[in-house]
Design a protein around this nucleic acid. Sequence first.
DNA 1: GTTATTTGACCCGT
DNA 2: ACGGGTCAAATAAC
Length: 331
Amino acid sequence: MYMDSSTPANLSGDREKILQELIQGRESANKLLTLILGKPSGDDKSSSVSAADDLLMKIFASFAESISVLNRAPIEQAFDKIPVNTAGSLPIGLQSEDSEGSSKSTSVLKQRRGCYKRRKTTQTWTKTSQNLIDDGHAWRKYGQKVILNTKHPRNYYRCTHKFDQGCLATKQVQITEEDPPMYRTTYHGSHTCQNLLKPPQIILDSTIPGDSSNSVFLSFGSTNYPSTKLNHETYYPSNPTFPLVKQEYSPNQELKPSFDRNKSTSADLLLTFDSSGPMSTLSSGSNHGDMISSSGAYSCTASTHDDSHHSFDLDVFGGVGDFDVSEFGFC
DNA sequence: GTTATTTGACCCGT
DNA sequence: ACGGGTCAAATAAC
C-alpha cells in the first residue's frame, strides 16, 4: 500500500519532524491539561471548552502529522508477520491456499486450523482500567485462553471489519490479578477500517460515569473533524488508529465485570503504548493516529528495537504520562 | 435466515 | 515441550 517506502535517510529526516510535531503536541496537551484540570469539576467546564477545543486542534494536527509521516514507512516494518488468512484481505475460505492440491488424509479444514503467521512487531499499547470501556470499534471475539498464573482467562478480539475491510486490529482483554481487579486491554495494530456506524469524531469527554472531576477523553485524528462539542459529548476518532474510550461498552461478555463497576473511578485508567514498528498499517492512509485518554492517569510508552531511543513525558494525563516516542518505529 | 460467541484444535515462538 | 495466539465448527443469539 505504500508506494514510496521510506529510505533510511528519509526515516532520519522524518524522525526529526515527528519529534518536533510530537513535542509540540505535548506542549499543547500540557496547556490543555492545565485548562481542564485546573477547572473545578462540574458545571462550569464549558467556559474552558472553547480554548480547549483550540488546543486540541493543535494537538490533533501535531499528532496527525506525525502519524502521517510514519505511515509512509514500509509496511513490512509494521507487520513482520500477518495472519495468513487475512493476507490480501480475503475472507477465509477464499484464500487460494494449498495450491499443490495435496490431499489431506484427515481433514483439510483441520489441517488449516490455526495456520497463521503470528505478528511479531505490530504496534501494541495497553490500557488498564477498572471498568470496561467502549473504544468505539466493533470487535468480535475470536478466542479465549487460560493464561498461566492468572485467575481469569484472556479474551481475544479482532476487528469486525477484518474481512470486509481488511482491518487487522486486534485486542486482548484480561482481568488482572490486582486487588481491585482491572481490565487490561492490549491493542494490536491500528484500525484501517471505516466505522460506518460511528462517524469519526474527536473526543473530549470529561464526564465518565463515576467521576466527573478530571477525566479527559482525547482523540488524536489526522482528519479535520470539527470539534464542535467538547463538553459532555462523545467524539469518535476519525479512523481510529487508537481506540476510542467511551463511557459504556454494551456488547458481549466484556460487559460482565466481576466487580461493581459503579465503584470504579475514571481516574484510574492507564494507557500504555508499547509498540514497535511504525504506526502504519495496510491503510492507504490519511487517518491514523487517533489517541484517546479517558482519565487523569494516562501514559503512553513506545520503544523500538533500535538503539536510538527518544523519550519524553506527555505530562498530559494526570502527570503520570510518559511518552516514549521511539516505539513508534521511526528509529 | 444472519451474525456473534464458545471452545477445542492447531500452529508458532521460545 | 510448553504457553500463547488463532482458526473454525458448533452453538447461541437475534
